[in-house]
């Protein structure tokens, strides 16, 4: 009788441990954005993105602290936080979605896989559905995910005054570059 209880408990523990290995995470993911106009090029980098990916279901989540975006010019950084994304009110941007073709990716085998990610992007307090192409590279148990897509500030109620309209692109190019490690629990 005791054996049964012990075995069951072991099984339960094992089950949870195995399941947890299906997940990968990072706290140092890179997100950059780039706005290009004939008047001015603006770029910013963030190296502290957190993200978790569930290789079984294909689910992925991202969270990024807006104040951690670093700009070339101090004043741009101040205006970005104060006037545009209002980091005081909306400190984080997040994405919650899934890899649509998760079946095509074998996280146990080295290789490069083309994927499509679909989900909801929340920025400046506004949530919108987005879809983006991406690449997943598996090598020696490490997973890298990369994607490039466009975001229109207008869609997220980020107001740009006429005075600087010419300096900020209507479509901002966002680049995501994540190096995931296995999540051990």
């Amino acid at each position: 009788m005791k054996k049964i209880i012990f075995n069951t408990l072991l099984l339960v523990l094992l089950a949870t441990a195995v399941q947890a290995q299906d997940k990968f995470f990072t706290k140092t993911g890179k997100i950059s954005f780039f706005s290009s106009t004939p008047m001015e090029d603006i770029q910013a980098h963030n190296k502290t993105t957190t993200s978790v990916i569930d290789t079984k279901t294909g689910k992925m989540e991202f969270a990024v602290l807006m104040k951690a975006f670093q700009f070339e010019k101090a004043l741009m950084e101040e205006h970005f936080n104060e006037n545009y994304v209002e980091s005081g009110k909306f400190p984080k941007a997040s994405f919650s979605g899934a890899i649509v073709n998760i079946g095509d990716v074998d996280f146990k085998k080295d290789g490069t896989y083309k994927v499509t990610v679909k989900g909801n992007l929340t920025l400046h307090g506004v949530t919108k559905p987005v879809e983006a192409p991406g690449t997943i590279v598996v090598k020696n148990g490490v997973v890298n995910a990369a994607s490039t897509f466009n975001v229109a500030p207008e869609d997220y109620k980020i107001a740009i005054p006429n005075l600087v309209r010419e300096k900020i692109a209507k479509q901002i190019k966002v680049t995501v570059d994540m190096n995931y490690e296995p999540l051990k629990s």
Partner: peptide, 10 residues
């Protein structure tokens, strides 16, 4: 399994 909020795992 029913872990909706993946980030909370961190």
């Amino acid at each position: 399994y029913a872990q909706d909020d993946l980030l909370s795992l961190l």
